[in-house]
Design a protein around this nucleic acid. Sequence first.
RNA 1: GGGCCGCUAGCUCAGUCGGUAGAGCAGCAGACUUUUAAUCUGCGGGUCAAAGGUUCGAUUCCUUUGCGGCUCACCA
Length: 505
Amino acid sequence: MPRPIDIILENRLKKLTQLEEAGISGFPNDFVPDSDTRTLHARFDSATQEALEAESARFRVAGRVMTLRNMGKACFFHFKDRLGSLQAYVRKDVLGEEQFERFTLIEVGDIVGVTGKLMKTRTGELTLMAESVKLVTKALRPLPEKFHGLQDVETRFRQRYVDLIMNDWVRELFVTRSKIVSYIRSFLDGRNFLEVETPMMHAIAGGAAARPFVTHHNALDIDLFLRIAPELYLKRLLVGGLERVYEINRNFRNEGLSHKHNPEFTMLEFYWAYATFHDLMALTEELLSGVFTALRGEPAIEIGGKRISMAPPFRKLPLADSLSVVGGLPADKVTDRDYLAEVLRRNEVEVIPAWGLGKLQVEVYDKLVESRIEEPTFIIHHPVETSPLSRRNNENPEVVDRFELIVAGREIANAFSELNDPRDQKARFEEQMKARDAGDEEAHQVDWDYVRALEYGMPPAAGQGIGIDRLVMLATGMENIKEVILFPLLRPEVAELDTEEPAES
RNA sequence: GGGCCGCUAGCUCAGUCGGUAGAGCAGCAGACUUUUAAUCUGCGGGUCAAAGGUUCGAUUCCUUUGCGGCUCACCA
């Protein structure tokens, strides 16, 4: 007993076979469109039927059949290319008996090439009056329902190709993502930054506090880590004299999945010699207001129906001050270790005795401040204790010249003036090593070659990371990171009987 | 990893206070030369996520498992 879907597959296969028996390929590659749906709409939507009749031009357009209204001796269908959709009108008396017979084997989901002249229907819709309709690619599987489309979230993520066919907003979202990335590239290229590619496989996973994925190289017989950050390699390039470098690429962190975390995610990191984190703040304001202006025509975003201005300048707030200004703590208590520990315990955070003032402040910040910040805000001057790669502030050595940019309660960027004193760097690595030995799996591993590089002299520099996925979420108003990643990681599908050939009847 | 919710036809969804299930679209057969969620007539289609338990009887109640969503924790 075949499953019902098998009957559908079989029927579609039968139509393909019929065509092939008539000597017609179901998968030809010789149809070359000379126009597209968007161009035709742009040029002719406002034209009258009389004007179209006078127009002698024929157009060749390819796309996927999305709806089909057969009326016996004539048929209307809509087909979709990457830019939009267009209606076609097919008449038996135009195509001829034989061609029309073959046309009736075409069904929703197939990709066709339509050749003909343009016309207007009675309701004024621009329509391609087909002189021929060629099957370009036979679809053996049926599309989801034409009206509701594909709704099931799991299927949308697992079979993103169907999601992209059915849901125009999804296709547009990924076009937006691409535009954001190319805007950033040209923004940085225009400021003489050099795009580089550094290793994805690291012998030492450094540059961030996170647990790495482990892989194995057979010929060398060594374990390697998928990178958790490109930072240390990019800074080696500053030592090498490249001075302005950036990389937009994947990082991998072996941590839990959530609506905000995919194990592989895309980061922009850039490093700028002879600049400080103040320069980065100015650059970031320019970059982000520019991105959103390019997308929407104004420097603003919309999250949950709420408009947030992204017009510079953004607020600057020292982390310690944010505990009182945003977190609501008494201003004189933000350096009081016992008080902060008490606040954390009240908020069900397990306080570890080894934590210093800085770590306590950061914990309180994470718990009480970050999610409450809506307007773009640079949280500056993080404690040195939690920033092992940042340069100390010249006035107050307890804090570093670092900022995190927060928008709508989310961290969008993390940046700092880079530490370039190899002695200080070595000491901080040793601190991290102790934390590691004490069981902190996320503490940085010591990268001696990086220290060696610094000993050659790295120019003073500032560096920044921007989470591209999160930025796209902000730009598109998405709350789930999987919505902005084409193929988010999901648990593998359970093996389906679906892989079997349709049963012989 | 914890908590909550969901999983019924290819798709979108009803439904069963426990008596083996329906609609629309899609499909099949037919009518129809300006339709547009085309329309009209007829037909077929289900291991109700999986396994176990309770029961005369489970798709429905219970337990476990799988997958997903939301949320908390961790992080970016």
